[in-house]
């Protein structure tokens, strides 16, 4: 045992700016818990809406919201989204609202200068449009499991390869995300003073992440071969129609009709 190891260290650390570490850790934690929550989203019940319909109508809503110039329709779409949001579990509600608020605030700040120029349309319509669209998409992702979304994509005739890659990507994000989190914790615990080479350390974490990823890809490949994978990937699913589906389609069809009605009305007004 060397002498220095036998003595207690007399060490007073200097402060260092390492918010980048805590921020990265928080970002990863949020990411992993989001995917976890998504993965354990409520199992489909009798009233569950088929993710295929959700995907179709969420896309439609996004298009209509983007197209419309009428605040009345936007207000109806926003109300629909908020009503949908307000019956979600509190955790979903909070998350979806937080994301929506952040994006909307960002949009608002970007558009502020246009108000100086007198363009009030952008400043009022755009943030509301952004909030409505982002919240609709987030509701879709929070109320459906990833696997359900994938099978919905599949119904859109997305190539098997794409569905397969999307599927394994999510799993890898969690696995690799967890080991990365671990690395960042290790970096944090060992950052006991002033680090003059922050980029070196972070790049090491990312670089070793890449090498581990590669290793993992090879392992997955071998495992798939061992289980008789031939390069074809099929998605199997059942299709059923529930009461929830009917209600969901009804409300969304109503919104589409409202859009057509309002747009025609407005055009007639202009004409």
């Amino acid at each position: 045992m060397p002498e220095w190891l036998l003595q207690s260290e007399n060490y007073a650390p200097r402060a260092d700016k390492d918010t980048f570490l805590s921020k990265s850790i928080l970002a990863l934690l949020g990411l992993i818990s989001k995917i976890r929550a998504q993965d354990t989203a409520a199992a489909p019940t009798r009233y569950a809406v088929n993710p295929f319909f959700k995907l179709v109508f969420t896309l439609t809503l996004a298009v209509l919201v983007s197209l419309t110039r009428e605040f009345a329709f936007l207000f109806a779409a926003l109300t629909y989204v908020l009503l949908y949001l307000c019956v979600q579990p509190i955790r979903t509600l909070r998350r979806v609202l937080a994301t929506g608020a952040a994006v909307t605030a960002f949009t608002f700040v970007i558009l502020l200068p246009t108000a100086l120029g007198g363009n009030g349309y952008s400043l009022t319509m755009m943030p509301v449009k952004v909030f409505t669209a982002v919240t609709a998409v987030n509701l879709l992702s929070h109320t459906s499991r990833w696997s359900e979304l994938l099978s919905a994509l599949k119904r859109f005739r997305a190539p098997d390869m794409l569905v397969f890659v999307l599927d394994i990507t999510i799993r890898y994000i969690v696995m690799l995300g967890e080991t990365t989190l671990e690395s960042l914790y290790a970096l944090k615990l060992r950052s006991v003073g002033r680090n003059t080479r922050k980029y070196n350390a972070l790049s090491g974490v990312a670089g070793s992440l890449f090498l581990r990823s590669r290793q993992m890809a090879e392992d997955t490949h071998s495992a798939m071969l061992c289980r008789g994978f031939t390069g074809e990937y099929r998605v199997y699913q059942k299709f059923s129609f529930t009461l929830g589906d009917a209600g969901y389609i009804l409300v969304n069809a109503g919104l589409i009709l409202l859009y057509i009605y309002i747009t025609r009305d407005a055009n007639a007004g202009i004409g």
Binding site: V165, I168, R171, Y172, S213, R214, A217, T220, H221
Partner: peptide, 14 residues
């Protein structure tokens, strides 16, 4: 070697 694409995507995401 398809898994490599998923890995690349996960890496890019992270």
């Amino acid at each position: 070697k398809l898994p490599m694409l998923g890995i690349g995507a996960a890496f890019s995401f992270l």
